[in-house]
Structures are given as C-alpha cells and as structure tokens.
Design a protein around this nucleic acid. Structure first.
Lengths: 241, 241
DNA sequence: TAGATTGTTAATCGATTAACAATC
DNA sequence: TAGATTGTTAATCGATTAACAATC
C-alpha cells in the first residue's frame, strides 16, 4: 500500500503519481520498491517484450540493445537504461539472451498471472472491446460486463461474457478479484462509475470516456481518447494545407 | 531565449498558421519558418477546447488560466504557456473570454473544416469505430471503409459508409481528399497498408495495430495500443499484490 | 587477446513550474 | 486606483543521449 496518512480528500489526484522519498542521491544496489520508475519505461517494457517474442519465434538467440532499439525506433542507450531499472540482464560484449530477457520481462510485467477485467458500458465501443481477440492473447480476460440495459447490450455484443445491470456493480465485483476496470459509458456517468469502482477497491482503470477522472493518487488511470487523437491529428492535416 | 525584440504588437498576429514568431537572437540554428510546437501542447489544446465548450454551455463568460488548469489537472503556467504559443488571447487582470478563446482554438485546430477519414480493416474494432458516434460530433466523418472481405464487413458494421475491397485503395482514395487514415488490420498487413497510404498521399495515420509503422518523417502517426495499455496497467496491479 | 557491448555516470535536451513586470 | 491575471523570462525538474570503464 502507499503510505498516505492524511484524509481522503487530500488523495484526490491532480495527476501526480506516488512519490518515493529517496533522500540520498547516492546510487544504490537497492531493490525494486524504492526506485521511481517512469510510466514511459513500463510502456516500453511491453514493447520490448513484444519484440522479444518475435525474435524467439524466429529462433534468434541473442540481441543487442542497438538491435532492439532499431526495431522500435529508440536509442540503444535508452533500451539499456530502461532495462537497468530492473536489474542486470545483459552480458557485456554479447548482448541480451532473448529467452532470458523475455523471462525477466514477463516476471516484471507480472505475466503468467491472468488479468481479470470488468467492462462497464457495452455500447458500440464496449461491445467491440468485449469481442476483441487481442486481449485474450495477452492473458487479459474480460470477465464481467455491465450496462444499464443488459439485455440490449447482450444482443449488441453477442458474447459469453455475462452482462449485468450497472446497479449490480458492487454485488458482482468483489475486491481483489477484478484487476482492471475498463470504462466506456456516456460522459456524464463516467465520474460516478469511477467513484464506485474506487470504493470497491479497483486500482487500475482504462478510460475510453473523454472526461478527466478524479481518483485517489494510488489509482492508475489511462486514457484512450479517440476524439482527441483525431483532433490533434487534424491539426497537422490543416497545417500543411 | 528567442527574445522577441520587435514590437509586442507583432505577436498579436493571431494567425491560424504559426508565423515566424521565432524572432531569433539565439546563437546558432534557427528553424526555417515555424516554431516547433510540442505534440503534447496540441493535445492539450484539444482539451482546452473541450472545457471551453462546457463553459460556454454553462454561460460562463470568462475563465482564468488557474481555473482552466484546475479543471484539467494542469498548472496555470502551463495553460498560459501553451496558449501563448499561438498568440495573446488573454486579458491581464481578467483572464480569457470563453467564446473568444474557443474561437481561436477552433481556428488553430482547423475546425469548421470537416475531416474525412478512411478506415482500413473492418473487424471487431473497425466496425465499432465506424458506428461510433463520438467522431461525427467532432466534425470527423468516416467516408470510406476497406476490408479484404467487404461483404462480411458490411454485415458486421451495418453502416451507410461504403466498404470497398482493400485492393481498391488507390482507385477510391484520391490524394488530398482523405485527411486521416485509420488502420485496424491484422498485424502482418499493417506496414504494407501504411506504405500504400503514404504513396497515395496520406499524411496522418491513426494506428490501432500493435506494430511500429515505418513512415516518412512528414507523416504523423498516432498509436492506440490497447494491449500495451492493459499490460502496463497490469504492472501496477501486480506491483501492489 | 581483440572486438563488442554492457551498465552507469555525466552532459544535453526539452518540458514544466516559478516568478514577476506589464497592464487591464 | 487596487487587485487580479496575463505573457514571458529564468529556474527547476525530468528524461534522453553520449561517453566510457568494465568485462565477456
């Protein structure tokens, strides 16, 4: 748990992540928990893992940071630095052994473990997500669906995943059982849903709703904001005209 | 740095295209014609626009950078700095007039103009996107759909948008008519499709496929990588267990 | 050994925040 | 005017890149 001692009100997140107090500036051999790891690093870790998978499939035995970097459009130094956050996985003069590094990354990213997802809001987008194959592949399973109109939602999605009315959120989701909640409800409802999820004990939310969620600092929220992506892209389109 | 030595008035040059605000004075290199605006700024611009819309709806007349910032979890300084990239839109001691700032943002983000989108790959995700309402609202219209099996795709999507076989990409899409291409094809095909799109003249791509696309530097690519988001979230879930 | 490549520290670059004169 | 808030420069913070001794 995060070491927060003051009142709940103070927890309301303004976009900061949990800090660690690492007073001394000395580099230390110190284990995983005290070093602050940038979110961007974690994302790249997933990227590395993906490439490693391909390499393994191609029976490539070892790979250098330079090679890895080239495949992802990054710099070799960055690859090495990212990995060094978690340990010494490489061999000087040689590189990284594909299968070993893969194993390490899996360990870091917590795989093997199945991730259980609850999906709230089964509209167009929601039903696409529920039938999207890509998740299963990653060890991610959508195990609960919720919608105000479960029957219509069931028709839309045509899936085995059980779909419950949203009022059953608390009764169906027990703390610790759900790992990640995915929200794709109408904008007005998003914050209320998030509040309920937090109360249940969910600590990771993937939010497809174009609304900034206010959640305690120890809750991770990721935004997938399609309109925003398109709008910012359209800036460049107009730029060049 | 980049001290504007000329009259401040010149800055009030609230143009749509970014002028050479770069009155140099910086020792060395000077970019040719435009100040480089970070992508993150452009994204936040969309965010501001969204908030402004709400404020206007609530008949709020003016808003300060502090207020704007609070609503988005940013700092007031950042809001002012972002906006200052494009001109002087505020009034000292007063703030920003909602409708005026909104107008400016619309101008910058190129709205009014309709954005025409081609969607390549109408699987589960693709068909959700094609029937997703949120885009229309933003002045974004999906005008062409492509799939290897247009007939099946048509059934899946149940939409008015015409769906063509992928081989017709070149014949159906004329340069300049399509603003943004959205790719949601199987991974193996993504790069080939991107190559063809670039050849046609598309300069903005929203890519839902978990594959890094290699494109010329003047082509904007945005990635929406759902597996990656979930996997990185799952890191935090495992962290706390 | 000689060549290659790591892990890590120092330098650089970029983005965010603080501070404040200008000014409505 | 007095108070408020902008636009902008300077300071800070963080992340990326360069450099290189260690070492396989």
């Amino acid at each position: 748990m995060s070491p927060i001692t003051v009142g709940q009100e103070d927890l309301v997140n303004k976009g900061m992540s949990i800090q660690n107090i690492n007073g001394n500036g000395t580099p230390e051999e110190n284990s995983l928990d005290t070093k602050k790891i940038p979110k961007a690093v974690i994302k790249r870790l997933s990227l590395y893992k993906r490439v490693l998978k391909t390499l393994e499939y191609q029976s490539v035995e070892k790979v250098s940071s330079a090679d890895l970097a080239a495949r992802l459009g990054l710099s070799p130094a960055q690859v090495r630095k990212d990995l060094a956050f978690f340990g010494q996985f490489g061999v000087p003069g040689v590189g990284y052994y594909v299968s070993e590094l893969q194993k390490e990354l899996r360990k870091i990213l917590g795989k093997g473990k199945k991730i259980s997802v609850a999906l709230i809001g089964i509209g167009n987008l929601g039903s696409a997500l529920i039938s999207y194959g890509g998740f299963q592949q990653q060890g991610v399973t959508i195990r609960w669906g919720f919608d105000i109109h479960p029957e219509e939602a069931k028709k839309r999605a045509s899936t085995d995943v059980p779909i419950y009315p949203i009022q059953d959120l608390e009764s169906k989701l027990s703390p610790g059982e759900v790992d990640i909640a995915v929200i794709s409800v109408p904008g007005e409802q998003a914050q209320a849903i998030a509040d309920r999820l937090v109360k249940i004990g969910i600590r990771a939310i993937l939010n497809f709703v174009p609304v900034r969620l206010k959640v305690p600092a120890d809750v991770q929220v990721r935004y997938v904001d399609l309109s925003l992506e398109l709008e910012s892209l359209s800036y460049y389109v107009n730029e060049r005209k």
